[in-house]
Amino acid sequence: MAGSRFIPDRGLTARMVATMSLLGIVYVAFIIALVLVGMPLWLVALIVIGFAALQYFASDRVAMFAMGAREVAPHEAPELHGVIDRLCSMADMSKPRVAIADSDVPNAFATGHSRSSAVVCVTTGLLRRLDTTELEGVVAHELSHVAHRDVMVMTIAGFLGIVAGFLTQVGLRFALFSGGARNREGVPLVMVAFAVVVVSALVWAVSFLLTRMLSRYRELSADRAAAYLTQQPSALGSALTKITGEMARIPSRDLRSAEPFNAFFFTPAFSRSGVSLSSLFATHPPVEKRLEQLAGISRQLGTGT
Rank of each mutant, 00 (worst) to 15 (best):
P286N: 06
T211P: 04
P286E: 04
A263Y: 07
L202W: 11
D254G: 06
A282E: 02
S234E: 13
A258V: 14
S273D: 11
F266R: 01
A175F: 12
R182C: 12
S215K: 04
K242C: 01
V275K: 10
R299C: 10
R256S: 05
I243P: 02
F208S: 11
F174L: 09
S221P: 10
H284P: 02
L160N: 07
A205V: 10
R272Y: 01
M154P: 04
V196N: 03
V199S: 07
M191R: 09
T155R: 07
F281L: 15
Q169V: 13
K289N: 03
P285H: 12
P260W: 05
L291Q: 06
V287T: 12
V192R: 05
I250E: 02
E246S: 03
W204N: 13
V190K: 14
V203H: 00
L172K: 00
G171A: 13
T168Q: 12
P251C: 06
L172V: 05
E246T: 00
A222Q: 04
F261D: 00
R249G: 00
S252C: 07
S178Q: 11
T168K: 10
R299S: 15
E219T: 07
Q232P: 05
E292M: 08
T241D: 03
V190E: 09
D223R: 03
V196K: 03
R184K: 07
E288A: 15
S278D: 15
G186P: 13
S200I: 03
F208M: 12
D254W: 06
D254P: 02
A269H: 05
I243G: 01
I297Q: 00
T230D: 04
V199C: 06
V275N: 00
A157T: 04
Y217E: 08
K242R: 09
F174S: 09
Q169R: 11
